[in-house]
């Protein structure tokens, strides 16, 4: 095993561990912190099926954002959909034999990387152009966008311009997920791409990216509007 392989194997495991432990610790915190009072944002669903439907609309279509700001919705929605497709397409690196459905999805060439990059650039621009978001934006907002743009750019490079040998990439990734380290491909663009992804994983649980898990715990969205019918009881707020 080369030094580079050893380094990246360790780096990858550390990054994944930090991400998993960090993310799950945050989720545990969100899940266990009590919600003493009923605070659904009404009109709200009156049963839990309705809450699931509301969540699907929010998570799947960004409904509130859609009705709030169509421009940001377009940028944000495109970005997230492109990200989702990209992640799905990357899943083939984690299966020994790629399932037919995944191969089928992957076979459509829709230049999703470019859409992802474009949407990110658009969001970056909007941050600067709208005086209200320019005022609000913090260093980490820009850093994250730049980070994701770099990941998209290097990914695009390995796919369309400086082709990398994906069989080697898959070998390497399969080695990682099966705890049987394989040599890391020497392609520098791939290594940069991979490094950025690992850094992002490490930063993830400490960042605003926690909105991905946090949205499911938002009381104004996930509570059932049944305050009069069902007495809402939580440990610290109601004695006995």
């Amino acid at each position: 095993m080369s030094g580079l392989t050893l380094l990246y194997t360790l780096f990858a495991y550390v990054a994944i561990a930090v991400f998993l432990v960090g993310f799950l610790a945050r989720i545990w915190k969100y899940a266990t912190t009590p919600s003493p009072l009923k605070i659904p944002l009404t009109p709200a669903p009156v049963n839990s099926v309705g809450v699931v439907y509301r969540m699907v609309q929010e998570v799947g279509f960004f409904k509130s954002l859609f009705y709030s700001n169509r421009i940001i919705w377009i940028g944000g929605y495109l970005m997230h959909i492109a990200l989702l497709i990209t992640i799905v397409k990357h899943l083939r690196f984690f299966f020994k034999t790629t399932p037919a459905a995944l191969a089928w999805i992957t076979s459509f060439e829709i230049y999703v990387g470019f859409i992802f990059f474009g949407a990110l650039a658009f969001l970056f621009l909007m941050r600067l152009v709208i005086d209200r978001t320019y005022y609000l934006s913090l260093m980490q907002d820009y850093v994250l966008l730049i980070f994701l743009m770099l990941i998209a750019a290097t990914g695009i490079l390995t796919k369309y311009y400086v082709r990398t040998d994906i069989i080697k990439v898959k070998q390497f990734v399969m080695g990682l997920v099966q705890f049987r380290p394989e040599a890391i491909p020497g392609d520098p663009i791939f290594i940069i791409h991979f490094t950025l992804v690992l850094l992002l994983l490490i930063y993830f649980p400490f960042s605003k990216l926690m909105h991905s898990g946090g949205i499911f715990f938002s009381p104004t969205r996930n509570q059932v509007d049944d305050a009069r019918e069902v007495r809402h009881v939580t440990p610290w707020a109601v004695k006995g």
Binding site: K96, T98, I167, K170
Partner: peptide, 9 residues
């Protein structure tokens, strides 16, 4: 051999 491994048609 490689194409189905990598999931590329």
């Amino acid at each position: 051999k490689c194409h189905s491994y990598a999931g590329v048609e």
